[in-house]
Amino acid sequence: MARLAGKIAIVTGAGSGIGKATVELFRREGATVVGADLHGADFECDAGDEEQVAALVAHTVRDHGGLDVFFANAGISGGFSSIFEQDADDWAEILRVNLIGPFLAVKYAAPAMKERGKGSIIATASVAGLRSGAGGPAYSASKAGVINLVKVAATQLVGANIRVNAICPGLIETGMTEFIYDRARAKGQQDLIGKLNPLKRGGAPIEIANVALFLASDESSYVNAQAIVVDGGLSASHPFNHQSYGRTTT
């Protein structure tokens, strides 16, 4: 049986990368999915704009009869500039999309889900939200905020049977990280991608989509207020240049 049969879902950031892979996977698993993005999706939506998110939820409920899953995946990186190279406008825009976006998802999805008696809200955070070294300052701060947001939101939805969780990807090959992969390949250093995690590789969008599928499904019915890390083991330790399994060092 399809794991999301009968469920109605919204996925933001659906035009590429993790969002696109998730839309395709959810549909294969039986869900009715509204993919939203600035371009290249079913519904054009700026995930950090309150009026547009409200319209996205209203459209989904009106046209499809309800809402069971909202994957607040849209995000921007903002680059790797230091705190001293960024200004308040840079921070405001990154926080608007990456943190206010998931807040709006909770605000507008939860009432629609309550009408259905249950629901699952998922937000894309990042290992950059756990500790420094995996992203720029504003990006890292925004993702730390997402991790805390899902915990607060879950407690504020007590008794509603609506679960709120985050996924913390490590290095995944998407449009956001394309420059890292392109630079490595141009230098013939593609084998170094992901070398700091125990699996010694980067991840693929489908590997994040698979975790989103679990959180969207009833299989995760007792998983709530969690930040699930999907990073090949990178965040298990402070990064260093691991030796391959079984290799001795001197």
Rank of each mutant, 00 (worst) to 15 (best):
L99Y: 11
A225H: 13
G194H: 12
A5R: 15
G233R: 07
L234P: 00
V33T: 03
H238G: 05
R96P: 13
T60E: 15
A2I: 06
E207N: 10
S77T: 07
N241E: 13
K143P: 07
V11K: 11
L38G: 14
A216F: 08
A21Y: 02
G159M: 07
I94A: 10
A21D: 08
R27N: 02
G159H: 01
A166Y: 03
G30P: 08
A154F: 13
G48S: 12
F70A: 12
A227H: 02
A36D: 00
P102N: 07
G119A: 09
I206Y: 00
E29W: 06
I193P: 06
A36V: 13
A110F: 12
L99N: 05
S120Y: 06
D42I: 08
S142M: 09
P102I: 08
K20T: 07
N161G: 01
C168V: 09
R183I: 03
L196N: 01
I180H: 05
V69H: 07
K200M: 07
L234A: 13
N210R: 15
R27Y: 06
F71C: 08
P169F: 04
A47R: 10
I193R: 08
S235V: 04
F70T: 00
V11P: 12
R185S: 10
G246A: 13
K151V: 12
R163Y: 10
A204Y: 11
G13H: 05
A110R: 10
V158F: 12
V146P: 03
G117Q: 02
A31M: 12
V152N: 05
K118A: 00
P137Y: 04
A5V: 14
V34D: 12
A74Q: 03
